[in-house]
Design a protein around this nucleic acid. Structure first.
Lengths: 194, 194
DNA sequence: GATAAAATTGAACGGTCGTTCAAATTATAT
DNA sequence: ATATAATTTGAACGACCGTTCAATTTTATC
């Protein structure tokens, strides 16, 4: 007596995330979304509730992808700090062609949204904190392994990585100078507060 | 036989800039603008050509305001590097309540816009470069006065300040921790590459 | 005061927006 | 095969979008 949804929710959210990441919340229309996720309005609203609801899910998917990538970097790297360096090179340098947008979707969202959509703003902040916590975990591991001086404050370092990454990705979109960017990424780990 | 415009163009652009800065290009409607600048559609279009035209002028006004503020900081400071520090404290810390948005309008614009509006994107990049050039001028002065080691590359330092400022302002909007932010601003000038 | 050019007004345009919902379709359990 | 309930469809809604332009108002000049 039941009929199950035939679309692949993960795939749909992936496509929506890509579009939202590229064009932003205000820059993306429901009709744009209908096209890329191949669903009709009724289905979209039955599944996600609203344009905001789908965006919220996209923000979460984006963050999940980022954290997965960070963990992949860890697996393929010889140490936590090398993994962090590789991850930062990825997002600052290699996203140039691969990603829908050079900038961090969470940073973009922080810039675009106001108190007109308080829940989305809150969600973006929450997810940025989640990413930062993931950095903390990796830095903690670095300390445990003796790669990082045990006197360092991992919370401070994680915050520092957030600021550097968001700053560099914004700068990268405005002025793409691969060599200089590469130097700046590497410098993050060579100097204070590391 | 002529009739001169009765509105104050500078004041109009100021008000438009404030609104655009707060809500972004896509988040601001012409009707929102009509309200805050107190002009009717016909007059706006006769004066600025389009929503994009007015935004372009707002970007320029925003940049002009920023550069003026930087120069004010220089006048009221004992040295170029102190002036840079004061300026950064202003935009990162004091804008919390004063400004329409904690983030840099140019950075916000870089995040929001795509190749759908290539001229606005180009203009934002151009203006970011202009700000960077202003930093170079100040750093050059610091070198001339012996406040800054003459072996330092002023272009590199200016780029560094851009990245730090944009990163910190984005972070500040996501997670307002005044004390930590203050430390991070001051650290910019205490450590590499300074 | 008459003239004419410039500036201003605001109704209106076609289009797109986010969203709804009655109707059609589908897949399962009997 | 039939009944049933979940899912899907897409036309339609009212609101708002950026923009236009004929009509009106204003003001410097003679």
């Amino acid at each position: 007596m039941r009929k199950n949804a035939k679309f692949d929710r993960a795939e749909v959210v992936d496509n929506a995330t890509r579009l939202y990441w590229e064009k932003g919340f205000n820059g993306t229309s429901m009709r744009n979304l209908q096209d890329v996720i191949d669903m009709r309005p009724g289905s979209i609203y039955a599944t996600f509730g609203s344009k905001e609801g789908l965006f919220k899910e996209a923000l979460n998917r984006y963050t999940e992808m980022g954290i997965e990538e960070l963990r992949r970097c860890r697996v393929h790297s010889s140490s936590p700090l090398v993994a962090l360096n590789v991850f930062m090179r990825n997002v600052v340098l290699d996203y140039a062609n691969k990603a829908p947008n050079r900038m961090c979707m969470l940073a973009k969202t922080m810039g675009e949204l106001t108190q007109d959509t308080p829940e989305l703003l809150k969600e973006a902040k929450r997810l940025l904190a989640k990413v930062e916590a993931e950095f903390v975990t990796l830095l903690q591991e670095a300390q445990d392994l003796g790669e990082l001086d045990s006197t360092k404050n991992v919370a401070t370092l994680a915050r520092h990585i957030q600021v550097q990454t968001m700053g560099l990705r914004t700068y990268a979109k405005a002025c793409d100078n691969q060599e200089e960017l590469e130097t700046m990424v590497d410098d993050v780990f060579k100097h204070h507060p590391f």
